Computed example of a mutant assay.
Amino acid sequence: MKKNVLITGGTGFVGRHLTDLLVANGFSVSILSRSKRANTENIFYYIWDVEKQFIEEEAIQKADYVIHLAGANIGEKRWTNKRKTEILSSRELSAQLIYNSLVKYNKNLEAFVSASAVGIYGAMNGRAICNEEMQPANDFLGLTCQKWEAAANQFEKLGIRTVKIRTGLVLGKEDGFLKKLVPIFKLRLGSALGSGKQYMPWIHIDDLCRIYLEALKNPLMTGAYNAAITDDTTNELFSKRLAKLYGYTVWLPNVPSFLIKIALGEMAKLALTGRRVSSEKITKLGFRFQFQKLEEALKDCFSGE
């Protein structure tokens, strides 16, 4: 029997790539969805409703692992009070549903792996390198990630090995962080944001999915791990590299910070602040990033265009 991985948020950008990798590595995958879909040989779909705290029992009973990716997109809409509540509750309530279901059916897992984000270190600038031992920040980004991880930590009470993947900006061919930038840069209108000096910890989608696979297979993985390249990529450098792929040099001045704040409100922090992070903890386990240089990662994302 193939080991089964139950994924929340499995139909999203990361979830789709991760499903393909898991199937290629001999797993079967169960994906939770709000509507029924047709199963395939190795991919099964089950209904869940987070608000009603409902999940099909079979999804829980057949799971050997759970990967928890579900959560409202933090950069999709302005951070109104209502939206902030949605961002927080979507992460907490979905994890709680999985937890309650495991308890209800007296089901154990080999591992529970949860998404998190480098935003746990807060909306900060500066050259300090953030590692997993640092105290979380008390701003909205930091608090969101703290609650996200706290929802994951409760699985440890059930004796389940628990891993939290603190993800940077995900680079991929058809989605992720680049999706909003590509149309602008294609028109040769790309430029840096604000000072341009804010750091941008990034990771290629393939490497991120390989980290999740490692989290399932490696019994030594437990606790939090940064999933981002340790380098000095700033917003200005990122903009220059992206423009170069389209055959031009950035010619427009940086977009002023005040305009970004007007357009995005408090969410402007996502664009105007950044942080450097250390990936030493994951590499000490023997994990090796396939894409360690930004230019190589971007070229791969745009290969075939």
Rank of each mutant, 00 (worst) to 15 (best):
A152T: 12
F155D: 00
K157R: 08
I160G: 04
R161V: 03
T162L: 11
T162S: 12
V163T: 09
V163Y: 15
K164C: 00
R166E: 02
G168I: 00
L169V: 06
V170A: 03
V170Q: 07
G172P: 01
K173M: 03
F177V: 13
V182P: 03
I184G: 11
I184A: 07
R188S: 06
L189Y: 12
A192I: 02
L193Y: 02
L193C: 03
G196P: 11
M200F: 15
W202Q: 05
W202T: 04
W202P: 07
I205D: 06
L208T: 10
C209N: 14
C209T: 14
C209S: 11
Y212S: 12
Y212I: 08
E214Y: 14
A215L: 10
A215S: 15
K217Y: 10
K217R: 13
N218E: 10
M221Y: 05
T222M: 06
G223Q: 06
A224C: 04
N226Q: 12
A227Q: 07
T230R: 09
D231F: 04
T233F: 09
T234E: 07
N235H: 07
E236K: 14
E236T: 09
F238G: 05
R241Q: 15
L242H: 04
L242D: 01
L245E: 00
Y246I: 07
Y246T: 06
Y248S: 08
T249N: 04
L252F: 10
P253R: 05
P253W: 05
V255R: 07
V255F: 07
P256A: 00
S257F: 00
S257E: 01
I260Q: 01
I260N: 01
I262N: 03
L264N: 08
E266R: 10
E266S: 11
A268P: 15
K269W: 03
L270M: 15
A271N: 03
R276H: 14
V277Y: 12
S278L: 01
S279P: 08
